[in-house]
Amino acid sequence: MQGKELMDKSRTVSQTPIAATEFDVQKAAAISVLLVRPIGILPDKPGDQIRPFALGLFNDIRALAKPDVKATALRRAVGSFVHSKRYYFASAQSDSMRHDIDGKPVEPLSTEDRLVAQRRLLSLKRNNDEHSVPRVEPPTAAAPSKTEQIRAALLKRNRQT
């Protein structure tokens, strides 16, 4: 089992902070438009560091929601960000820290939380691999037409006589 963990670790651990992509920034912007003010934990531009959220941070974020924003919409937007491959990758790092709403580190991620992030990241990678390789079905012979079936039966009967 230890070999498997080391193999998995090599695919889930980076030596540098995990940088946000344009897609991560779009997800962060989807959260920001639902809030009365920007929050420092979200990336503003590609290349900004993705930072794992402190435990219970959603409650702080929800307190900043615009009056007309439903909690479900906010939860979905935040969920889209925190259940992404790059967020899991950032959380899986051996030196991962949780951050407050302003983006300041508050505590290291527990070993258990890092392992969960690694497993989810590997699961996402496997799912992406399965969906990215197109399945090629072997060609199947077309069913013979009624005419071909009659012809084959007559030829078979003629050979037997």
Rank of each mutant, 00 (worst) to 15 (best):
residue 4 K to H: 10
residue 8 D to F: 03
residue 9 K to Q: 13
residue 11 R to A: 11
residue 12 T to S: 13
residue 18 I to S: 02
residue 23 F to V: 11
residue 23 F to D: 12
residue 26 Q to N: 08
residue 31 I to T: 00
residue 31 I to V: 01
residue 32 S to C: 03
residue 33 V to E: 14
residue 38 P to F: 05
residue 39 I to L: 04
residue 39 I to Y: 12
residue 41 I to A: 03
residue 43 P to C: 06
residue 44 D to E: 05
residue 45 K to Q: 14
residue 45 K to M: 08
residue 48 D to F: 00
residue 51 R to A: 10
residue 51 R to S: 05
residue 52 P to G: 08
residue 52 P to I: 00
residue 52 P to N: 01
residue 53 F to E: 05
residue 56 G to E: 02
residue 56 G to F: 02
residue 56 G to N: 00
residue 57 L to A: 15
residue 58 F to L: 03
residue 60 D to M: 01
residue 61 I to P: 00
residue 61 I to T: 02
residue 66 K to L: 13
residue 69 V to N: 03
residue 71 A to S: 13
residue 72 T to K: 14
residue 73 A to K: 14
residue 73 A to D: 15
residue 74 L to C: 10
residue 75 R to W: 12
residue 79 G to M: 08
residue 86 R to S: 08
residue 89 F to V: 05
residue 90 A to Q: 01
residue 90 A to F: 03
residue 94 S to Y: 02
residue 101 I to R: 01
residue 101 I to G: 04
residue 103 G to H: 04
residue 105 P to G: 00
residue 105 P to H: 04
residue 113 D to P: 00
residue 113 D to E: 15
residue 120 R to V: 06
residue 121 L to Y: 06
residue 122 L to E: 09
residue 122 L to C: 04
residue 124 L to A: 15
residue 125 K to I: 14
residue 128 N to C: 05
residue 130 E to Y: 04
residue 136 V to C: 11
residue 136 V to W: 01
residue 137 E to P: 05
residue 137 E to W: 06
residue 138 P to W: 06
residue 138 P to Y: 07
residue 144 P to D: 03
residue 144 P to A: 02
